[in-house]
């Protein structure tokens, strides 16, 4: 249950992500875990687009780490893809619970240097968050079960 602790307070991640987006003047920010699940985001119009970028970002990170291993290296500090219209920065970092990955897209208002500087601050802030081992709030199990049935029926049609 390595992620068990994380779930309760991922709302707290929003602050550092917003600060990063503002200070580094980036267009899009996405904070995901190694499985490509989204913990925080800023700048995306559609929740479902976020997931596409997250899935690909996690894939890029995972495959580049595989490349590093093939080359006998421990891994990359971060990845950067340059481009005329926009640039992409992918930075993984450890938390007390698990590895998280920051994906960000920026244009000429920012630069790789700026992104790196404020990425380092974001990492510090996230690692310092107090919620890494707090207890989880609960919800009514019976109610959840009832709603689950109804929700599935609604999506797939009653069978």
């Amino acid at each position: 249950m390595r992620r068990g602790d994380l779930e309760e307070f991922i709302g707290d991640l929003k602050g550092p992500v917003d600060t990063f987006a503002r200070e580094a003047a980036v267009r899009l920010v996405l904070l995901i875990n190694g499985s490509g699940q989204v913990l925080a985001q800023r700048g995306f119009a559609r929740a479902l687009d976020v997931m596409g970028v997250a899935a690909l970002g996690a894939g890029i990170h995972a495959s580049s780490r595989a490349v590093a291993q093939l080359l006998g290296m421990p891994g990359f500090k971060h990845l950067h893809q340059g481009g005329a219209a926009g640039q992409v920065f992918i930075g993984p970092f450890q938390t007390p619970s698990e590895e998280l990955i920051l994906i960000t897209v920026f244009g000429e208002d920012s630069s790789l240097g700026l992104v790196q500087v404020f990425y380092a601050r974001l990492v510090e802030e996230v690692q310092k968050l107090p919620g890494w081992s707090q207890a989880r709030p609960t919800t009514d199990a019976a109610q959840f079960e009832r709603d689950l049935e109804a929700g599935l029926d609604h999506f797939f049609g009653a069978t």
């Binding site: 003047a25 920012s110 630069s111 790789l112 240097g113 700026l114 790196q116 500087v117 380092a120």
Partner: peptide, 25 residues
């Protein structure tokens, strides 16, 4: 263009990468 340091000679305590990135920007 990317605000990264090519070569630096700084007194201790100066955040080189931050200065480079912010000033270049």
């Amino acid at each position: 263009d990317d605000g990264l340091i090519v070569e630096a000679d700084l007194m201790i305590g100066i955040a080189g990468p931050a200065v480079a990135a912010l000033v270049a920007s």
